[in-house]
């Protein structure tokens, strides 16, 4: 397996408060990795560092073997736009746009023509069971529907890595399971690597592997490796 993203000894403090202190992690191509940990452990911060949103105070972040933490903001923005997809807990849809336009947005951002972008966005609605929702605004969608639209948006540009930060956090169990089902299914189908931050074990159970972040340090454990 090839490593897609690797974090080495990341440290980051927000003012006086340390969020990461020496976190290391590597993500293999095509895998679904769950990053778990209690609230305030730094797991979202770790995700933001891996995705090039935040720059660590110390340590290195490598994507496809290239350091990205040293890139200027514009390059990191471009990287996020081109190579990464994102799904957050809530509130990520642009309220003015229709569901369809929200899904097409990453393509539009990459300069795809409007008609082509919408044509690419449309099949996702059938795939995610959202038929007939194309013209709705985010205010007219239920939480689960909005989250599925967000998922489609995260995957529509066929990113290499999908970052999901508590994607089911605002949903009930059943809806959450459906979203996870679709996310993991679609990602596997596309060969997209998924980094999934969650504090829920049942969500993490969709992953191939998990990492635990505690007090700003990450550790990965393979259950197999410690078995007697």
């Amino acid at each position: 397996m090839t490593t897609v993203i690797e974090a080495r000894d990341l440290a980051l403090a927000f003012g006086e408060t340390p969020a990461l202190r020496g976190a290391s992690l590597s993500v293999e191509a095509g895998e679904v990795l769950a990053v778990m940990g209690p609230s305030g452990s730094g797991k979202s911060t770790l995700l933001h560092c891996l995705a090039g949103i935040l720059v660590p105070d110390a340590g290195e972040v490598l994507f496809n073997g290239q350091r990205i933490d040293t890139l200027p903001e514009a390059r990191r923005s471009a990287l996020r736009r081109d190579k990464f997809g994102f799904v957050f807990q809530f509130g990520q849809l642009v309220p003015e746009l229709t569901a369809e336009e929200n899904v097409a947005l990453p393509l539009l951002l990459n300069g795809v023509r409007r008609s082509a972008a919408l044509a690419e966005a449309r099949p996702w609605f059938a795939r995610l069971g959202l038929d007939g929702m194309q013209g709705r605004r985010s205010g007219e969608l239920s939480g689960g529907q909005a989250q599925r639209v967000a998922l489609a948006r995260g995957l529509v540009a066929r990113p290499q890595v999908l970052f999901a930060d508590e994607p089911t956090g605002a949903l009930d169990s059943l809806t959450g399971e459906q979203v996870m089902e679709l996310m993991v299914g679609a990602a596997r189908e596309q060969g997209t690597t998924v980094v999934l931050v969650t504090h829920e074990a049942r969500v993490a159970a969709y992953a191939d592997r998990e990492a635990i972040v505690r007090d700003g340090r990450a550790r990965t454990l393979r259950a197999e490796s410690v078995a007697p």
């Binding site: 159970a205 969709y206 998990e210 635990i212 454990l221 259950a223 197999e224 410690v226 078995a227």
Partner: peptide
């Protein structure tokens, strides 16, 4: 943590079964 990993492995199996 070892216990946790064991639990999660079992949960993954059950999730797979469930799917």
């Amino acid at each position: 943590d070892t216990q946790r990993a064991a639990h999660l492995r079992r949960m993954r199996e059950l999730t797979e079964l469930r799917r």
